[in-house]
Design a protein around this nucleic acid. Structure first.
Lengths: 115, 115
DNA sequence: TACTTATATAATTAAATCATTATATACTGA
DNA sequence: TCAGTATATAATGATTTAATTATATAAGTA
């Protein structure tokens, strides 16, 4: 049932703690589908920019997301190389996709496309 | 990939928050294999009885465990009827079994058997 | 270079969390 | 009924968490 050799209790509980916040859990669900930059999340969650930055930092510190700069924006992506990536992806499968949030963002013309 | 129709973000994040504590996560892993009573957990985790009771209460309040009295003991069991039971069981599969803890408990003669 | 936009960090505060001690409740058996 | 054991609840305090405001850094552009 698990491809990973068994994971560490300590590590998994820390990750669960991070996913125990609705904002971060939703972020991860969205990042499973595509990358987002900070300012998009600010709009999506209607939350202050530092609050968003701090959530992303926690996710980054524990290795669940990676960041990469593109032009003036910093995009965050799901880190599928993480030890617990499989566990997390399984978990996220149980959650509703957040399409409406993306649709709304696009409707407001706030989607950042960068290529 | 999921049998459950999609779960609620709010509910899942609350559950993840509960599993974000190493003691509770370990409890759930152990309860996946068999039932335990409070005093066994007190020994296993080497923690005060009220601390254990309060962890179990949180798990019970959110519906992850059920309790049943047997003689003077109260046994806790994994509630497989919970909405999120499947998700949780999947998650727990990734964790190492806690056999050593049980072995140690038995070695100390502190396992409560009740039938 | 100076201005604007995007993001990060620091300081602060309110609320939540977790363990402890003290106490109450409930069952068992003499 | 009383004593002992098992468990729950309440009160308290230390620590952590998550948001805010203020400020710093870095890139883009006129």
């Amino acid at each position: 049932m698990s491809i990973d050799t068994k994971l560490d209790m300590q590590e998994v509980s820390q990750i669960m703690k991070l996913l125990g916040d609705k904002t971060r859990l939703t972020m991860m669900k969205m990042l499973q589908a595509q990358d987002f930059c900070v300012c998009e999340f600010v709009e999506i969650f209607n939350m202050s920019q530092p609050a968003i930055s701090q959530h992303l930092r926690k996710l980054k510190d524990i290795g669940l997301v990676k960041e990469s700069r593109k032009k003036q924006w910093i995009f965050y992506s799901f880190n599928r190389d993480h030890d617990c990536a499989l566990l997390i992806e399984e978990l996220l499968q149980h959650l509703p996709d957040q399409k409406e949030r993306l649709v709304e963002l696009e409707a407001q013309g706030l989607r950042i496309s960068c290529e």
